[in-house]
Amino acid sequence: MHLSIRNLYKTFDDFVALDRISLDVGDHDFICLLGPSGCGKTTLLRIIAGLMPFDGGALTMGDTDLAAIPARERGFGIVFQSYSLFPNMTVAENVAYGLKIRKESSDAIQTRVEALLEMIKLPHLAERYPHQLSGGQQQRVAIARALAVDPALLLLDEPLSALDARVRVEMRAEIREVQRRLGIPTIMVTHDQEEALSLADTIVCMNQGRIEQTGTPEDLYLRPRTRFVADFVGQSNLLPTAWVREACPECLDGRPDGKDEAFELCIRPEMVALSRDETAEGRVTDISFLGNVTRLQVAWRGRALAAEISGPCGLRPGDAVAAALSSGAWVRT
C-alpha cells in the first residue's frame, strides 16, 4: 500500500504550520522527516497518524481517503519520544494491548507477544513493569507494541531523542534492522541529521512548514539544492557568487543562471584541500583536533573557510597554507 500526501495544508490560527506538503511513501520505504524544531515535521506526522485534523489537500493510503478515518481505525503503529508505556501494565501486557483491543484469542496474543519480545531481545523481561526498565529497553518495548498489530505504516516521533548517546547509536541499528526485516513502510521524525543520514532511504528536509528538499542521504549531503539544506545537513562553507568569481573562477562551472544573490556555492569542509606552502596567501587561524579528524579555520582571499582533514594535520595557527576548492554544489539562497 502506498501513502500519498498531496498539497497538505495546516494552520494554527494565523500561523501556517504546513504549506502544501506533497510526499509519497512506498511499500518498504524508510523516510525521515528532518528539520529544526517548529518546522512542522511533528505536525505532519500527527496528521498522518490521524491525531490532528488538517485544513486542505489530500491524504490517501492506496485507494482509501484517510481524512475522515480516526486514528484508532487507521491501523498504524506509533512510537513517541517519551516511550509512553502503560505504567500499570507489564511489558507483555503493553505489547499485547493492541491485540487485545482487536479481540484476538489469548493463544494468538501469547504467541505473538513471545515472538516480538524475542525480536527485541527482551524475552526475560516480560513480567517487568516499565519503571523497572532502562530508557532503551522501554523504547524497544514501545516499538514492539507498535509492531504487534502488523501496522500498515510505522510512525516514529523522535524515538531516540530521550536516550543516552551510546544507546541511541545501538538503537539506530536495531530499528533499521527490524524495519528491513519486516519491510514495513516507516516515517520517522528527527532533528538529528546524523540519525537521518544513517537510517533513511529518503530524507525529507523541512523548514518553516515547507519541504526544502526530498532525496537520498547522498543527495542531501552532496547535492543540496537550497542554502537551508546545505547549512542544516552537515557543515558547509557558503560562498557568495561575487566572491567565487574573484577568488575561484573555475568553480563557476555548473552555476545555474540567475542573479548573483540567487545562488551560493556550498563547499563541504572536507572538500577544501590544504597544503603547507610558505609563499601561499592562506593562514591557519584556528585548529580543533577531534580525534579522527582535525577541523581548521583558514583565512583565504578575504574569507574564513572551514576545512577538515582526517587525522592529525601537523599545522599550527599562523602557518601559511595553500587552499584548493573542489566539488561544490550551487544552492538557492
Binding site: G50, R72, G77, I78, L85, R145, V149
Partner: peptide
Amino acid sequence: VPPALEEAVSCLGGG
C-alpha cells in the same frame, strides 16, 4: 496524564 499515552491508545485502535 501524559498526552502521548492517550494518543498511543488511539493509534493502537482504542476508543
